[in-house]
Amino acid sequence: MNTLYFIVQQTMFFSIPLLVVALGGMFSERSGVVNVALEGIMVIGAFSGIVVINLFQGVLPGQPILIAALLTATAAGVIVSLAHAYASVNMKADQVISGTAINMFAPAFAICVARSIYQTQQVPFQNQFHISKVPFLGDIPVLGDIFFKNTYITTYIGFAILIVSAFVLNKTKFGLRLRACGEHPQAADSVGVNVYKIRYAGVMISGALGGIGGLIFVIPTSTNFNATVAGYGFLALAVLIFGQWKPQRILLAAFFFGLMKTVASAYSVIPLLSTLSIPAEIYKIIPYAATLIVLAFTSKNSQAPRAAGVPYDKGSR
């Protein structure tokens, strides 16, 4: 039973960042702007958040620092995403180009800044945010063990983001307009929706969630930040496509991938698997190979937002 709890807890660490960032990507792409900059946005978010933690650790208690870091990461993500929004909305540029530029810019910029502040490119931080047991809820049998022990506050924030995102996208006026801009911006414009504004909003939400996602990826998995999020931004992009641009499916995709990743990294503590003498590399391949296989069978009707990647030009209506 303990192994099961462990697997679920580990899965959270891998899945929640993917979930949050992929949801961010969803807002951008459903509004019609392809966002390959997620990796770069995550790096900037993580970097700014970790710097805040580094500055305040020891001064403030753990959870308030985490909240401050999360807010900083959100703001930093939004600022970077504005560069992407400006290029793809105002300048009608190729959205892959500005995304690639941001992906290249972010780690380089983080290293340059880190070197001028700390003399080295690594930013260390103390992990004081681990919650070994949530009061009361952690005492519930089984469920308490699974969801409320050995956890981080960020896990619950991730689920909250999922619920809010699904609600906003599917149940609000803004969500309807956003989806319209991603499918047929000309039609949206003709009934008085400001396509430029909506697309800006979509990209900025993706910046905010990307920044948060970067920080919550780094905190549980490391104790220093070295200007990388290990390709998780690209994986989030994959989760977004895997989840067919829909919140519920993104949740499934993120957890499917996170579970596979957990099995791959923790196979040695899983009784059945540890007895087999299979090389570690084979386990590491499993998440990626499994995703490919699932995709091959489920993608037949997958359809990206119709206008994603196409700059909207009022004149060509």
Partner: peptide, 9 residues
């Protein structure tokens, strides 16, 4: 299958 995702995998 979108080539971006399969290429990443």
């Amino acid at each position: 299958v979108n080539e971006v995702i399969s290429c990443i995998m």
